[in-house]
Design a binder for these strands. Structure first.
Lengths: 188, 188
DNA sequence: TTAATAAACTAACAACTGTTAGTTAGCTTT
DNA sequence: AAAGCTAACTAACAGTTGTTAGTTTATTAA
């Protein structure tokens, strides 16, 4: 909504990523914006609301990136490759927020925590289905689908770390390499 | 050393894993042992010392598991497969501690934080070398070694999650599947 | 029996936490 | 010029934090 609220969320993303949600105080966030902690409450309802918005906005980004690919008519192997690249592109585009999304969601209170878990499971299910389709088409080996999906997602979800350091990393090269590695890993 | 100190560390592992280091208070740890918070200080020096011991003990476990494999004379491909299985066996054997080791180390203070990062880099370097050897022997494709090592470790490091739920997961099957997936992913 | 030790206790501390209430200064709209 | 709104401020709150000091109790050693 307001521009100030966006600034708060962006500063919070950085701090939550660096120190973690619990170790970041409202006074830390305020200081990074050059205002007092109490002034934050002109723009947001609570500390947890900031976390909620970071987490659920990221969830939307991931779904938005992957849904057109799922609905497309390309062959299973290529569909999974595109999904991997889309997922990695979202992480590269929303670096700090991805770190918070991946590590700090457990500090959400109810009912947001349950909603979050449901959404995450729904997202993983998309990858499970893509893998299953590849098995049915005879391209992938017959394997433990849940285990494969979790392994693939974890092999991707560390990449936000690499966009922080001094070395300049090319997101496209990263995506290409991880995509190839994961696909070769499960092809017949 | 003392049995009570071990009990404190074990309870802390569970709580740190569930709620995170910062969100776990000394009173929480004390309560889980049926004593008062102040009584903990008869056995430990500080809250952070507990975290230090969890993290550095785990580091020792990982090195101890992998060093004999590195020193062995098996062929590069098999060496990497054994290293993957050893790494996954350590995680399976030290479930809660692995979660803390992987996620809470950043709350270490100096000089422990720097020491930890050095050790972790040294450990990753072992995997980088194993991959490099496989490239030199002509078994693995020529690829970004650092990127490959990080991807492999991340593909392994989520597995502590799976040993918590109601479903009974077989660590050996997990290790076998992830090992195969990673190796096929990088073989020529 | 006496002395020493280990491990618990109660009480308290200063600092910090998220948040609320009430106020003020500067724009914008009437 | 007057009124209203936005976004900052100061001050304070009740609760929690890690930790220390001093005391008590039970077990072990002399």
């Amino acid at each position: 909504m307001s521009v100030r609220k966006d600034q708060i969320r962006i500063q919070a993303q950085t701090l939550f990523r660096e120190r973690g949600y619990v170790a970041t105080s409202m006074r830390d966030i305020a200081e990074s914006l050059g205002i007092e902690a109490a002034s934050l409450y002109n723009h947001i309802h609570s500390k947890e609301q900031i976390l909620q918005e970071i987490c659920f906005r990221m969830a939307e980004h991931f779904f938005a990136a992957i849904e057109p690919i799922v609905k497309s008519t390309v062959v299973p192997v290529e569909k999974l490759r595109l999904a991997i690249e889309a997922h990695l592109a979202v992480i590269a585009a929303h670096n700090d927020a991805s770190a918070v999304f991946l590590h700090e969601w457990r500090h959400l209170g109810e009912p947001y925590l349950s909603d979050f878990k449901l959404m995450r499971n729904r997202y993983e299910k998309i990858f499970r289905t893509l893998i299953e389709d590849g098995i049915k088409s005879g391209d992938f080996r017959d394997m433990n689908i849940a285990l494969t999906a979790r392994t693939m997602l974890s092999a991707m979800n560390w990449t936000y770390e690499s966009y922080n350091s001094k070395r300049k990393i090319d997101p496209a090269e990263t995506a290409s390499h991880i995509g190839t590695m994961m696909l070769k890993g499960i092809l017949k």
